[in-house]
Design a protein around this nucleic acid. Structure first.
Lengths: 217, 217
DNA sequence: GTCAAGTTTCTTGTATACAAGGTTTTCAAC
DNA sequence: GTTGAAAACCTTGTATACAAGAAACTTGAC
């Protein structure tokens, strides 16, 4: 209850930022937050520092911490990097994945297909996440896995935006099939390429979405 | 002088940990450190949290923070990840590098060669670092660049260990040539492969070094 | 002598008080 | 009315006091 409170503050703040409770560039007032959570400034400051370390907010000395929504350029960069990280996971996974791992992957993919068939975007979203996390883990490289999971979490909000684009789900499933096939065949290069494309396409779709929104304004 | 002190504490602690001022698993006593730096526990705690965020130390609630030297397995994982990050940088750089960037890269490489010729390991070390950072930057992806630079810094101490191995410098230079050639030709795949190998070899050499040290004991 | 429970001591986590720098407002001069 | 400086206010950064949990030590029983 004690440790969990500090953790709870961090998680809660993360959630508040990601879900857009704060305007972009808004200062996170320590006193107001301390008030809100019913604690003193000290644990708030600790949470804010962790957020700054994870890149969700920016800390300017003697000025405060500000929410820092990444701009379009940075988002594209992050998606590009995510694509490369996933490609790396796929390359290792193709060489190292176990039969049990493959079975789990196929199962997750089947659940994805089911979600697409029933047009359950929310369910697809969760199973797709599981599918990708299984690949990270199958790389048998905990460090790489952690890096990939971290960036994936960071991009979660933006990934979700473009999931609802027409036709994307079907295309995504076809890509999943190619990924599973490459991993089954133990073809590192094919797995890396399939995953890179799969993720990069998401980045591009997102980019289009951004341009579209901007042109509407 | 004010802001710089807090930063100075962090840098200093980093240095102390990396250079082995603390034993592996040792607890970093807040009071002792506060004493040592002539400040209160508060800024020390902030620095320790940042260190924990960067993975250099581990924070156990209500127990303290402990220096966490990565074990052999984790180090190999980190080198593997580094190789993939550099490969990704190379892939993008091959498509995006400018003439000026290529010129800078060739210059850095020439300085590396010079250092090898004069057997100046220290100079080679610095120029080699510059060479790699130029490639990160040439990826034209600031986010990826930052990721690569961060991990490179983390591995600096271990990379340095294996630089003095016999014959490594010559081999390393040959690999540099291949990298520059691939980037000049705009061949993303070749650049990625060359960089991946170049870094992965370092990881393997390091692994051998570790086994060697262990068997000596 | 060993083990266990209770107590003491020590360390971390949190709250609060104070210091120092930044921002805004006010007021005067042009 | 606008500009500039000074002062008041506000926020962050640091120090210190206190609370709470963990480790170590003592003491007693077997």
């Amino acid at each position: 209850m004690d440790v969990r409170r500090a953790d709870h503050i961090l998680e809660d703040l993360e959630q508040m930022i990601v879900t857009g409770n704060f305007a972009d560039g808004e200062r996170l007032d320590e006193i107001r937050l301390a008030d809100h959570f019913g604690v003193s400034r000290t644990p708030i400051r600790e949470a804010l520092q962790k957020l700054a370390a994870s890149g969700l907010v920016e800390h300017l000395p003697r000025r405060g911490v500000f929410v820092r929504e990444p701009g379009p350029v940075e988002l594209v960069e992050m998606f590009e990097t995510m694509a490369e990280l996933e490609a790396a996971c796929g390359r290792f996974a193709a060489l190292r994945i176990s039969e049990a791992g493959l079975a789990a992957l196929r199962e997750a993919n089947d659940l994805c297909k089911l979600a697409v068939a029933t047009d359950d975007a929310d369910h697809y979203y969760r199973q797709n996440e599981r599918f990708h996390h299984l690949i990270y883990a199958a790389s048998q490289n905990s460090f790489l896995e952690a890096q990939a999971a971290k960036l994936q979490k960071r991009l979660k909000a933006y990934r979700r935006m473009q999931l609802h684009l027409r036709g994307r789900l079907g295309q995504s499933m076809a890509e999943h099939e190619a990924i599973v096939a490459a991993l089954s065949a133990g073809d590192g290069c094919a797995a890396a390429d399939a995953l890179r494309t799969h993720v990069a396409v998401q980045g591009e779709k997102f980019h289009h979405l951004l341009s579209h929104l901007k042109s509407k304004r």
